[in-house]
Simulated scan of single mutants.
Amino acid sequence: MTSTLITLAAATLTATVAAAVPAAAQMQSQTASASFVGKDDKETGRALLTAGKHGVLMEVEVTGLPAGTWVAFHVHETGKCDPAHAHASAGAHFNPDKTEHGFLAANGPHAGDMPNQYVSADGTLRAQVFNSMVTLDDKTNGIRGRALMIHAKPDDNRSQPSGDAGDRLACAVIK
Results as ranks from 00 to 15, higher is better:
2 T>R: 12
2 T>D: 14
3 S>E: 14
5 L>F: 12
6 I>A: 11
6 I>Q: 11
8 L>D: 15
11 A>N: 11
12 T>V: 15
12 T>A: 15
12 T>R: 11
14 T>H: 09
14 T>A: 12
18 A>G: 08
19 A>W: 13
21 V>P: 04
24 A>H: 11
27 M>P: 08
28 Q>D: 13
28 Q>T: 13
30 Q>R: 13
31 T>A: 11
32 A>T: 01
36 F>W: 00
37 V>T: 12
37 V>F: 00
39 K>G: 13
39 K>W: 06
42 K>C: 08
45 G>L: 03
49 L>W: 07
50 T>C: 06
53 K>N: 15
55 G>L: 07
55 G>T: 08
58 M>G: 02
58 M>I: 15
60 V>I: 10
65 L>F: 02
67 A>Y: 04
68 G>N: 02
69 T>G: 05
69 T>S: 07
70 W>A: 09
70 W>L: 12
71 V>M: 07
75 V>Y: 06
76 H>V: 05
76 H>G: 09
78 T>N: 15
79 G>L: 00
81 C>G: 04
84 A>K: 11
85 H>V: 15
85 H>K: 14
86 A>T: 14
87 H>M: 11
89 S>G: 09
91 G>S: 04
95 N>V: 00
96 P>S: 07
97 D>F: 14
98 K>W: 04
98 K>V: 00
100 E>G: 08
103 F>E: 06
103 F>I: 02
103 F>R: 03
106 A>N: 05
107 N>K: 12
108 G>Q: 00
112 G>T: 05
115 P>Q: 08
121 A>F: 09
121 A>H: 09
122 D>M: 04
123 G>S: 00
124 T>D: 00
125 L>P: 04
131 N>T: 08
132 S>Y: 15
133 M>E: 13
135 T>D: 12
135 T>V: 06
136 L>P: 05
138 D>G: 10
139 K>A: 14
141 N>T: 13
146 R>T: 14
147 A>N: 09
148 L>E: 03
149 M>T: 06
150 I>A: 06
150 I>Q: 04
150 I>D: 07
151 H>A: 05
151 H>P: 01
152 A>N: 03
154 P>R: 07
157 N>E: 10
158 R>V: 12
159 S>G: 07
160 Q>K: 01
161 P>D: 00
163 G>N: 00
166 G>V: 02
167 D>G: 09
171 C>H: 03
173 V>A: 02
174 I>M: 04
175 K>W: 08
